[in-house]
């Protein structure tokens, strides 16, 4: 049911862990639903220099976190803001329809982490003015 890419990122997840004194932290989901994703960002000069994650969830949730953190490392904040869950799904060679919400969680967790960074530094990030975490649905 999962692509080889999903299985690879699930079995050998990249960027697992936490970043001490992270510049931005984003957590979405809840244990009742069976998915929690927490993303840690280290940001220097508007560039994501490091990203790590911790995830409670199914195979596709773990693979989505792993792929999403890979995709944003080295990117500018602007580039990351325009990253959507579709990019995560595509990079994973697709997710089963019922699991697409896992990629939405990853997008949202990253944006929440960016908002956290913005708040801590009194910044406004273009493109995130109206951002809201989406209703979690399967």
């Amino acid at each position: 049911m999962y692509s080889e890419k999903v299985m690879d990122h699930f079995m050998n997840p990249r960027n697992v862990g936490e970043i001490e004194n992270a510049d931005g932290v984003g957590e979405v989901g809840n244990p009742q639903c069976g998915d929690i994703m927490k993303i840690f960002l280290k940001i220097e000069n508007d560039i994501i220099v490091d990203a790590k994650f911790k995830t409670f969830g199914c195979g596709s949730a773990i693979a989505s976190s792993s792929m999403a953190t890979e995709l944003i490392k080295g990117k500018s904040i602007d580039e990351v803001v325009s990253l959507t869950n579709r990019a995560v799904v595509e990079a994973l060679d697709g997710l089963p329809p019922k699991k697409v919400h896992c990629s939405v969680l990853a997008e949202d967790a990253i944006k929440v982490a960016l908002m956290d960074y913005a708040k801590k530094n009194n910044l406004n990030i273009k493109g995130l003015e109206n951002f809201k975490v989406r209703e979690h649905e399967h």
Partner: peptide
């Protein structure tokens, strides 16, 4: 602290067939 489907996938990878009552395997919320 862990979710059933991930558990099943990793067990399957070791050749072990089992089942879970997690939402992800029941196909509902």
């Amino acid at each position: 602290f862990i979710e059933g489907e991930s558990l099943l996938l990793l067990l399957d990878n070791q050749g072990i067939a089992a089942s879970s009552g997690s939402a992800c395997t029941s196909g509902s919320l």
